[in-house]
């Protein structure tokens, strides 16, 4: 990830907007902080869900408490702030994991919280329903998130950050505290497993 924020898959404009909102929030602008919240909260929730499942909302609430404090001292651009927010989410989620001393994949996702995909609204996703039907697996969003959550921790996180949230490998590695090579490997394995699970979605029902 670079300073310009164009390497994380999110359009540079969005990251610039985020950076500007962060700056405004640092000046005390509440509306700007609200914008930061709305921009990041969905992906923080998804990320937390992949790690902790049903406690995602609690994790993200804690995350925002910390962000609300730290935003005032943050130095960096929008892309860096996004990474930071994701990293905070990760740490709070891992706190929860430690507290539970249970593995993330045993936990179900807060499925009620995730809206169903609006397939028609997906940009460039016109073929999405077709391919899903071809595979005989019309997976809902929550099913996909819980499917990802069934992967071993680092694989699940790599898939979510790298593919779903579209961060680049370096940013993902930074957030996960791993080397890019390790991230690529975890991602590869995770995707292969997921592909097989998608092929046989009934397998996921058991694990959930």
């Amino acid at each position: 990830m670079d300073a310009a924020g164009d390497g994380d898959g999110v359009s540079p404009e969005r990251n610039r907007d985020l950076g500007a909102a962060v700056l405004d929030a640092q000046r005390g602008d509440e509306a700007a902080f609200r914008a930061v919240y709305r921009r990041l909260n969905p992906e923080l929730l998804r990320y937390a869900a992949v790690i902790v499942g049903q406690d995602a909302e609690d994790v993200v609430a804690e995350t925002w408490l910390q962000i609300a404090r730290d935003v005032l001292r943050f130095e960096g651009d929008g892309a860096a702030f996004r990474r930071f927010a994701l990293a905070v989410t990760r740490n709070r989620a891992r706190d929860v994991l430690r507290r539970r001393k249970r593995r993330a994949q045993e936990i179900t996702v807060p499925t009620d919280e995730l809206p169903e995909p609006h397939v028609s609204g997906v940009p460039g996703g016109g073929s999405a329903p077709d391919t899903a039907e071809v595979a005989g697996a019309a997976l809902s969003t929550r099913e996909i998130v819980s499917l990802i959550a069934t992967l071993p921790g680092s694989q699940a996180e790599a898939v979510l950050l790298r593919v779903v949230l579209d961060l680049d490998t370096r940013s993902t590695a930074e957030i996960l505290g791993k080397r890019p090579g390790a991230v690529a490997m975890a991602l590869s394995r995770g995707l292969k497993k997921l592909a097989r699970l998608v092929e046989r979605p009934e397998a996921t029902a058991v694990r959930r």
Binding site: E30, F33, R34, Y37, R38, N41, P42, E43, L45, R46, E57, V60, A61, W64, L65, I67, A68, E113, L114, P115, P117, H118, V119, G121, V122, P123, G125, S127, A128, P129, T131, A132, V134, A135, A137, L139, T141, E143, I144, V145, L147, V159, V163, V164, L165, D166, L191, L194, A195, V198, E199
Partner: peptide
């Protein structure tokens, strides 16, 4: 293909925006 479609759909979603969480954060 199926996985790509599913992941794509998840990625494109507008996430849930709990108003309660937003007010707490503010």
């Amino acid at each position: 293909r199926a996985l790509a479609a599913a992941l794509e759909a998840v990625a494109a979603l507008p996430g849930p925006g709990g108003l309660k969480g937003e007010e707490e954060a503010l």
